[in-house]
C-alpha cells in the first residue's frame, strides 16, 4: 500500500519536474496552450458600448474586442478564433490568474497597485479615458476653464467628485455642485436643466449623451482632468505571451502610423518603405521570436485593421458614442499613442 503510494508520489514529482523543465524551454506556455485548443479565451465586460458589447447581430464588438480579434488573427489568421467570457469587475483578476482566460480586455484601469500586487501585467493603453465635462451647446462654453461658478451635476461620494473639486481648486475657480446619489438621477437633473455641467468619465459622458433627445445640443469639453488608462492585461510570468499581446497592440499603432489599412494592406506588401516591409513580414524575421509567423502583423491589419480603423469603427466621431481622438491620437497628431519601432 505504502509502496504504491510512494510510486504515485514519485511519478507525480517527476511529472511536475518535467513540466517545469518544459516551461523553461518553451517560448510561451500560454501560446502553446492556445495553439493546442485552437482559440484565444478573452475576458470582456458584461456590455459597455464601444468597448465590448453585443452588436445588432448579437456578436461581440468594440475596441477591446478588436484587440482579442487581433490576437487571434496574429496566431491563427482567423479573427473569429476567440471565445469571450463575460466578467464582472470583481472576478476579472481571479479569472485571469486562475487561467480561465488568456487575456483580460475589459475597461481595466492601469494602476500601480494592480500592476505590482496582483500577479498580472498591463500590456499597454488601448484607450486613454479620463474625467470630462459636458455642457449645453447653447451656453457657448468652449473650455473647462470657463466653468467657474457653473452648477455642476455630480454623483456623491465618487472619485469623480474629488477630481472635480481638485481641478477647480487648482485653477482658482468657484466650485458649485448639485449632488445626487445615483448616476441616472444626475443625468436626469442635467437634462432637466437643474445644472449647467455634467461630469464623469469621458467615454461614459459620450454614451449618456447619445441617449438625449437631441444629442447634438450637448458638447463634451476638450479638457480631461483625470487619468484612466484602459488596457489589456495578461498573467505575469509568461514573458512570451506578454510580448505577443504587447506587440499586437504596437502593430495596430505602427500600421496606422505607416498608413497601412485593411483596405490597402495587400498593395503595401509591395511597398518600398523598409518600415512597412518589416511590419508586414516582407523583410526580416520579427514573427519567429514571438512564436508566430513572420506575417503576424499583416494578418492583424488584414482582418482587424489598424488602430485608427478600430477606433473609428467603435468609439469614433461617426459612431453613436462620438468621441474625438484626443489623447488617443498618434504622437505625431498631438496624442500620446506611441509605438516603438519594429526593427
Amino acid at each position: 500500500m505504502s509502496k504504491k503510494l510512494l510510486t504515485v508520489l514519485l511519478a507525480a514529482g517527476l511529472g511536475l519536474a518535467s513540466g517545469a523543465a518544459l516551461a523553461q524551454t518553451a517560448a510561451s506556455p500560454t501560446l502553446d496552450a492556445i495553439k493546442a485548443k485552437g482559440f484565444v479565451q478573452c475576458g470582456v465586460t458584461g456590455g459597455v458600448p464601444g468597448f465590448s458589447a453585443p452588436d445588432a447581430n448579437n456578436v461581440w464588438t468594440g475596441i477591446e474586442v478588436d484587440f482579442c480579434r487581433a490576437l487571434a488573427s496574429a496566431i491563427f489568421n482567423d479573427p473569429t478564433a476567440v471565445r469571450y467570457t463575460s466578467l464582472t469587475s470583481q472576478e476579472r483578476f481571479t479569472a485571469l490568474s486562475a487561467g480561465e482566460i488568456d487575456v483580460l480586455s475589459r475597461t481595466t484601469t492601469w494602476t500601480m497597485s494592480r500592476d505590482t500586487q496582483l500577479g498580472i501585467s498591463f500590456v499597454g493603453t488601448m484607450f486613454y479615458d479620463g474625467q470630462g465635462f459636458m455642457v449645453r451647446k447653447a451656453d457657448g462654453i468652449n473650455s473647462a476653464t470657463e466653468l467657474s461658478g457653473a452648477a455642476i451635476c455630480i454623483e456623491s461620494g465618487t472619485t469623480t467628485e474629488l477630481n472635480a473639486a481638485d481641478y477647480f481648486a487648482a485653477n482658482n475657480m468657484e466650485f458649485n455642485t448639485v449632488v445626487f446619489v445615483d448616476q441616472d438621477e444626475v443625468v436626469k437633473a442635467y437634462e432637466d436643466g437643474r445644472c449647467d455641467v455634467y461630469t464623469t468619465d469621458s467615454s461614459a459622458l459620450a454614451a449618456e449623451r447619445s441617449k438625449f433627445a437631441v444629442p447634438a445640443d450637448h458638447i463634451i469639453l476638450p479638457e480631461i482632468i483625470s487619468k484612466e488608462p484602459l488596457g489589456p492585461v495578461v498573467r505575469a510570468g509568461d514573458t512570451g505571451w506578454f510580448n505577443i499581446a504587447r506587440w499586437t497592440y504596437f502593430a495596430l499603432l505602427e500600421a496606422e502610423e505607416l498608413g497601412v489599412t485593411s483596405a490597402n494592406v495587400d498593395e503595401m506588401l509591395g511597398s518600398d518603405n523598409p518600415a512597412i516591409k518589416r511590419l508586414l513580414g516582407v523583410e526580416g524575421e520579427f514573427g519567429a521570436p514571438l512564436g508566430l509567423t513572420n506575417d503576424w502583423a499583416y494578418r492583424i491589419v488584414k482582418h482587424v485593421g489598424n488602430y485608427a480603423e478600430t477606433y473609428e469603427r467603435n468609439v469614433g466621431p461617426n459612431t453613436p458614442i462620438g468621441l474625438a481622438r484626443g489623447l488617443n491620437a498618434l504622437w505625431r497628431d498631438g496624442g500620446i499613442q506611441y509605438a516603438p519601432p519594429i526593427r
Binding site: G46, G47, V48, P49, G50, A53, P54, A56, D184, E191, A207, S210, K211, A213, T319, P320, I321
Partner: peptide, 15 residues
C-alpha cells in the same frame, strides 16, 4: 441589462 446600454436604441425610456 446589457442591451439597456445599447446605443442603437438609446432613449430615455429604454431601460
Amino acid at each position: 441589462k446589457t442591451k439597456n446600454d445599447a446605443l442603437e436604441w438609446a432613449s430615455a425610456s429604454q431601460s
